[in-house]
Design a protein around this nucleic acid. Structure first.
Lengths: 158, 158
DNA sequence: CTTGAAGCTATAGTTGCTAGAGACATTAGG
DNA sequence: CCTAATGTCTCTAGCAACTATAGCTTCAAG
C-alpha cells in the first residue's frame, strides 16, 4: 500500500492532482489509514498511469472518464473506444494544421523585421493590418474551434 | 461611432469579450453615449483588430499588452517586438513538435484497433501500458510545459 | 407607443489543475 | 521518548481567457 506521495512519484502525477482526480470522481475514493491518510494499491496505480498517459496524449478528462468506464467492461465492443481515439486524432490533426499556418506567418513576421524602429516594424505592421497577412482569416469552423488548445499535458514528474 | 455590437461584428470579436478586454485594461475605457452605452471610433476598431489578429496567432493577452504599448512608441527600436514574436514562434514550434508525436501515436492506436472486444482493444491497451507506446515519456521540460496550449483563437464571428 | 433587439452591470461557470493556510500524522535522528 | 522535519489532511482561492446567466435599461423600427 502506497501513500499518496509515493503513488504520485511512481505515476508521475503531482499529489494535489491525484486528490483532484478523486474529487471529480475520476479516481475512486481511496482507502484510508488509521490516521486518515489515503492508501493506494496496484489497481489505483494502474488507473492513474492510464489517466496520465491519456492526458499526455491530449485526451480531455471527460474523454478519459469514458475510456475508463469502457475499460471496465471488457466484453463490450471496442467501437466506442475507437471512436474516442479517432475524435482525439481528428482534433490533433486540426490543431496541427492550424499551428503550421501560424508558424509560417510568425516566421514571415520575424524574418522581415529588419531591426529598425517600431514605426517600420514588420511585426507590429502585420498585426495591425490584417490584409498584409497570408492566411485570409485563419477561420476555423465553429465546431472545431473549441478544440484548438492542447491540455497542457501535466509537466511530467510529481 | 459604433456601438459595441457593430464593433464586435466588424472585428470578429464577441461582445462580452470586448467588455472583458476593457475590464482587464487591454482596451481603454470606451466613450459612452447619453444612455451609457459604449461608443467606439476608428482607433478602437484598429486596436481591437490588432488584438484579434494577435490572438489568432496565439499570443497571450500579456504579450499583446506589451505589443500594444510598444506600438504606442513608434520611435523606439523594434527589438522588443521582435523578441516577443520570436518567443511566440518558438512556442509554436515546440507545440508543433509535440503534436506531431501525439498524432503518430494516436494513429498507431487507431489503426491497430481491429474493432473487436474491449479486452483486446489496442486503444485501451496502449493507454494502460506505457511500455507499449512509442515515445518514452513524451516529457517536456518544465519551462516549456505551460506553453503547450494554443489559446483557442476566439471562433471568428461576433 | 409598443415591442423586441441590443445594451448595461455583476456574478458565476468553464478546464485542469496549482498554490496557500492551518491542522494532524508519520518517520528519522539523537 | 522526544523533537524536528517532512508528509498529509481539508478547504479555499487563483490562473488564462473567456462564456453564460440574471435582471435591468436603452434604443430603433413599425
Amino acid at each position: 500500500m502506497l501513500t499518496i506521495g509515493k503513488l504520485g512519484e511512481a505515476a508521475g502525477v503531482k499529489v494535489p492532482t491525484i486528490r483532484y482526480y478523486e474529487q471529480i470522481g475520476l479516481l475512486p475514493e481511496a482507502e484510508r489509514s488509521s490516521g486518515n491518510q489515503r492508501l493506494y494499491g496496484r489497481r489505483a496505480m494502474e488507473q492513474l498511469a492510464f489517466i496520465r498517459h491519456a492526458r499526455d496524449l491530449g485526451f480531455t478528462l471527460e474523454a478519459i472518464r469514458d475510456l475508463l468506464s469502457l475499460s471496465d467492461r471488457p466484453d463490450q465492443s471496442c467501437a466506442a473506444a475507437d471512436a474516442i481515439a479517432r475524435a482525439q486524432l481528428a482534433e490533433v490533426e486540426s490543431r496541427l494544421a492550424r499551428l503550421i499556418a501560424l508558424k509560417a506567418e510568425l516566421e514571415r513576421m520575424v524574418v522581415q523585421c529588419a531591426g529598425g524602429r517600431i514605426a517600420d516594424c514588420r511585426v507590429i505592421e502585420v498585426l495591425s493590418d490584417h490584409s498584409l497577412c497570408a492566411h485570409d482569416h485563419l477561420s476555423v469552423p465553429k465546431s472545431v474551434d473549441a478544440s484548438l488548445a492542447l491540455p497542457a499535458s501535466t509537466s511530467s514528474s510529481n
